[in-house]
Design a binder for these strands. Structure first.
Lengths: 140, 140
DNA sequence: ATGAGTGCAAAGGATTTGCATCGAC
DNA sequence: GTCGATGCAAATCCTTTGCACTCAT
């Protein structure tokens, strides 16, 4: 994460402790947390940080293409510091969100241009089902 | 739409003029409107209808599996009376949402089970790009 | 007639904004 | 020291809820 500093400098942005902490946390987790969750998580180490700062920072990180925004159909957004194109899967029972690893559907962007008059840049692919724990629980 | 009546009757629900109008409008449009848009559209013919009724009706229609909810990454939801699984495409410039017709990715639900420990029921696939009009405008 | 549905207004939750203060450069 | 960033509170937007009244059955 040495180059973070450079990237921020280039854009005349300041790499504040808050911004660094939020990015570092997002890089470290696979939970796809909401803004609120990030706030709760960092509250302990950064007790003065406000929720507004979390939102503002996330907006900044998205503009820098360091973070992507997800919307699985909940009433809020979730955030992912893995900006490579990859599908997500949502547990209809417990609300957990995971990455689907080992697949790449980037080719779909070109493919789909045969079926529409749009030009296509990106896509989001969300699967819905039951996570291992909830499958198990349902089987009882 | 004769069977609507039956379907509602089975569930002990009333097919009120408001509910009928909202469903009929959704069936008739390809615009994937938001609740607000539906409300605005029907205001002329149903001047006493409230936005709360639109929301409540949409919830009911979703439970009946007559309508599906979309979230393209905007701050609100959109609604589609085509409940067959099909991708949507969002214009990054004007915000228009269209169906992608002629493709079916239902097979992905099974496929993806090889890459995750979840069981998979459904998916949503959203493409992002430029609609024909916005492509044209950008070319000037 | 009766219980579900409507419409209104108020509440709720997520996110944004304005502004005085703070702190990274 | 400067200007962008923070933190707080208020504001905004979307959606839901409570409740008295209405109306489809």
């Amino acid at each position: 994460m040495k180059d973070l500093n450079l990237l921020f400098k280039e854009k005349n942005l300041k790499l504040t402790p808050q911004r660094y902490a939020i990015y570092k946390y997002l890089k470290s987790t696979k939970n796809h947390p909401s803004a609120e969750s990030i706030y709760e998580e960092l509250k302990e180490d950064y007790p003065t940080m406000s929720l507004a700062t979390v939102y503002k920072t996330l907006k900044t990180l998205i503009e820098l293409n360091l973070v992507q925004e997800l919307n699985v159909g909940e009433d809020n957004f979730r955030f992912d510091a893995n900006v490579d194109s990859h599908p997500h899967i949502f547990c209809l029972s417990c609300g957990r969100v995971d990455d689907v690893e080992g697949v790449n559907f980037t080719f779909l962007n070109k493919e789909i241009e045969n079926y529409t008059d749009y030009s296509v840049d990106t896509h989001q692919l969300y699967f819905y089902g039951l996570c291992p724990k909830c499958k198990e629980r349902g089987r009882k």
